[in-house]
Simulated scan of single mutants.
Amino acid sequence: MKFLLTNIVFLIALGAFGQVGPVSNACNIAQNICNNAPLTFPLSQGASPSPVVPPAGSISNPSSNPAPGLSGCLLAGELNPNWFILNVTSNGMLEFQIGAAGGNGYYDWSLWPYNPTTGCSDIQNNLVAPAACNWNASSQGFTGMSPGGVAPPGGIGGNFTPSIPVTAGQQYILMFSNYSYQTGNVQLTFPPTGASVGCSASTPDETICLGDAAIIDIVTPPAYVNPTYTWLVTTAVSNPTGGTGVVVNPTVTTTYAVEVQDNAPGGVSYIDSFTVTVVAPPQPNAGPDQNICLGSLVTLNGTPNDPINNTSQWLYDASNVSPTPTVNFIPNNTNMTTFASMNQVGMYYFILQESNAICGDVHDTLTVNVSDLTITASSTSPTCNGFSDGTYT
């Protein structure tokens, strides 16, 4: 069990050590964690330039741990801090490890639910309680969250807090305290058994009809400050540095990649990718126009260009025929080769409609002229010896 150092010891330590490299040592410049790969970061030493953690015994920094059997949270306050934003990208149990077995030093930490608009002020104003925390039981340089709080090999149970359930889209902010004024670098790692974290904005894929355009808004992590965008694939892209309202109209299915840069101090970048799928519009062929006699069947033999992925049917227009006729499809109007009967003469339009969900309905029309069968009789007077005065018998 460790004890709080006195102010005198703090001052001596502050004079003995300087801050190691650029670090995210304040809540408002917290570093986004952009993937599950181990992150090596320099240990902070000294006070935060913008402290927000209230004294121990408060709502945002309780003296008792939310997990039974463990000590408090940041009982030494915001001491030698490193700040990180965890963007959850899959459902599961949140697990992480800081440091490694065989190390030295007390590595305390606290984890709060994070609202990118009010996150730091929520902590400062005691409006949010930690979801988990750990006031180390052993100076081992190894701490984190694990299933049930069971320490990984080489770890000490009192240094590990039970993992918590999380869902994709949630954000948490983690403050790590280098209580023992250790120097050098340590790693923040995420075991593969836990929920995944990252910065990926997961801009959704789009599907367009050939000739149409998609309007792309890059979905950027809310914690990013003044993000900038560089399109690495620029095929048919209206603005290769745009992040919102970018018009893309490729003629073939294209996977785009966009580098997104966080411009906060110590900000990182990641590459977001998404695919714009281009679907060809239907091209139905209803066949040639026809002329038939009333009482005959018209043979319809249509050809859709994609009978597997599209739906097709026969329609008709007999609005110019009076009185209103009866039209029947035999056997039905969804067979591409079918027959139709009409009971009135006139001009009929048979329409082959081919449809898909992206491009909608496309039509091709054939005209059928239905005529009545007319029998015309004629006679010729018989001629006998040059005179038309005879009769047929």
Score class of each variant (00 low, 15 high):
Phe41Cys: 07
Pro42Lys: 05
Ser44Pro: 08
Ser44Trp: 00
Ser44Glu: 06
Gln45Ala: 09
Gln45Leu: 06
Ser48Ala: 06
Pro49Glu: 01
Ser50Thr: 08
Ser50Phe: 05
Ser50Arg: 04
Pro51Ser: 04
Pro54Arg: 02
Pro54Ala: 04
Pro54Ile: 04
Pro55Met: 09
Ala56Asn: 08
Gly57Trp: 02
Gly57Glu: 08
Ser58His: 05
Ser58Val: 11
Ile59Asn: 12
Ser60Ala: 10
Pro62Ser: 10
Pro62Phe: 06
Pro62Thr: 10
Pro62Asn: 10
Ser63Leu: 01
Ser63Asp: 02
Ser63Met: 01
Ser64Gly: 10
Pro66Tyr: 11
Ala67Tyr: 00
Pro68Ala: 07
Gly69Asn: 06
Leu70Ala: 05
Leu70Pro: 04
Ser71Phe: 12
Gly72Arg: 05
Cys73Trp: 08
Cys73His: 08
Cys73Gly: 06
Cys73Glu: 10
Leu74Met: 07
Leu74Ala: 07
Leu75Tyr: 05
Leu75Ala: 11
Leu75His: 05
Gly77Trp: 07
Gly77His: 11
Glu78Cys: 02
Leu79Gln: 12
Asn80Ser: 15
Pro81Cys: 10
Asn82Trp: 04
Asn82Phe: 08
Trp83Met: 15
Phe84Arg: 15
Leu86Tyr: 09
Leu86Thr: 03
Asn87Gln: 12
Val88Glu: 05
Val88Tyr: 03
Thr89Gly: 06
Thr89Ala: 11
Ser90Trp: 11
Asn91Tyr: 03
Asn91Arg: 07
Gly92Val: 04
Gly92Pro: 15
Gly92Thr: 07
Gly92His: 08
Met93Trp: 03
Met93Pro: 00
Leu94Tyr: 01
Leu94Val: 02
Glu95Ser: 08
Glu95Pro: 03
Glu95Asn: 11
Glu95Gln: 13
Phe96Gln: 09
Phe96Trp: 10
Phe96Arg: 09
Gln97Ile: 14
Ile98Val: 14
Gly99Pro: 05
Ala100Asn: 15
Ala101Phe: 11
Gly102Cys: 06
Gly102His: 08
Gly102Trp: 10
Gly102Arg: 07
Gly103Thr: 12
Asn104Val: 13
Asn104Met: 13
Asn104Lys: 15
Gly105Met: 11
Tyr106Ala: 01
Tyr107Pro: 00
Trp109Ala: 12
Ser110Asn: 07
Leu111Trp: 01
Trp112Cys: 02
Trp112Met: 03
Trp112Pro: 01
Pro113Leu: 13
Tyr114Phe: 15
Asn115Pro: 14
Asn115Ile: 13
Pro116Val: 11
Pro116Thr: 09
Thr117Phe: 10
Thr117Tyr: 10
Thr118Arg: 09
Cys120Gln: 03
Ser121Arg: 09
Ser121Phe: 04
Asp122Lys: 00
Ile123Asp: 02
Ile123Phe: 03
Gln124Cys: 03
Asn125Phe: 15
Asn126Pro: 12
Asn126Trp: 12
Asn126Tyr: 14
Leu127Tyr: 00
Leu127Arg: 01
Leu127Val: 01
Val128Asp: 01
Val128Ala: 04
Val128Cys: 03
Pro130Met: 09
Pro130Asn: 12
Pro130Ala: 07
Ala131Pro: 03
Ala132Ser: 14
Ala132Tyr: 07
Cys133His: 02
Cys133Glu: 05
Asn134Val: 15
Asn134Phe: 11
Asn134Ile: 15
Asn134Met: 14
Trp135Gly: 09
Trp135Ile: 12
Trp135Asp: 15
Trp135Val: 12
Asn136Ser: 14
Asn136Cys: 12
Ser138Asn: 15
